[in-house]
Write a protein that binds this DNA or RNA. Structure first.
Lengths: 145, 145
DNA sequence: CAGATCTCAGCTATACTGAAATGC
DNA sequence: CGCATTTCAGTATAGCTGAGATCT
């Protein structure tokens, strides 16, 4: 009550609040030794099986260009393979290697830890509620484009 | 229920969720013609009166370096003045001009609109709850450093 | 032909770091 | 001296754009 260092008027801007929390979240995940994008792509790949880069981009909401670069790295590190789809030669099917699966399991463990650190001050109900509210916002604005 | 395009496993990563919402928030505010940083600084200045850049940086959680550049722009545009503090000559007191105040009122109106657009899918209680949860996270992690 | 996909070469905004200059 | 403040220069990352090549 006495120690309110957050500027009142600025805190009225939810955009500001969300951005700062996002930064903090990113920091926590990075401190756990995880690149958010890599994790997101590997996880999406495991879930979707072998898909095209374009599909992957839609799933992870990542830019085609950045995704292309990232997949290049992952391929170079032997975590994924990139093969021309013979049924539609425009596409390249990206697939997890067994090394990629191992890497994903490793990252998942670290991410779980980071997640716990990030949400530490919240109880189970609050975590659920936070996720619900954020998801609602995302779904709403996603639909509008 | 049928249309669940968000990858299940990725959405488990709250960090990812928060980041995407932050991006959306930023977009909404930018679409309203507002630079988040400029608004934050002007608002903090109105609230704090004439303070040093360092103090301003702490209030708005902005980097000294970036803040310096931004204040340079604002000064060039006649929105703030920057004067050496004679009581402590290391400091420069930054102060809103009347043009700056007018600019702030203009931005505030746009920000209110953007805020409304961003939070449209949430009811009043939900907005309060979202802000409460985010603030709690921020305060917690802020204290830890 | 329209449209999708992959690729490449950039751009911008944001956050941050290191270090010098000045003054307390 | 240690410490705070301002300033400058440079780095890193994320997200994005435009355009060409290839294919359906």
């Amino acid at each position: 009550m006495a120690n309110d260092s957050t500027p009142r008027r600025v805190s009225v801007l939810s955009s500001w609040l969300v951005s700062k929390v996002a930064l903090e979240a990113q920091r926590v995940v990075a401190d756990a030794g995880v690149r958010r994008q890599e994790f997101a792509v590997l996880a999406a790949l495991e879930e979707a099986g072998a898909t095209s880069q374009a599909d992957l981009g839609r799933r992870v909401w990542m830019d085609r260009s950045d995704l292309h670069a990232l997949i290049g790295e992952l391929e170079h590190d032997g975590l994924v393979t990139r093969v021309v789809d013979e049924r539609d030669r425009r596409r390249k099917r990206v697939r997890l290697t067994s090394e990629g699966e191992a890497r994903l399991r490793e990252l998942q463990a670290r991410v779980d830890g980071a997640q716990e650190a990030l949400l530490a001050p919240l109880g189970p109900d609050e975590r659920r509620e936070l996720r619900r509210l954020l998801t609602r916002l995302l779904d709403h604005h996603r639909g509008a484009r």
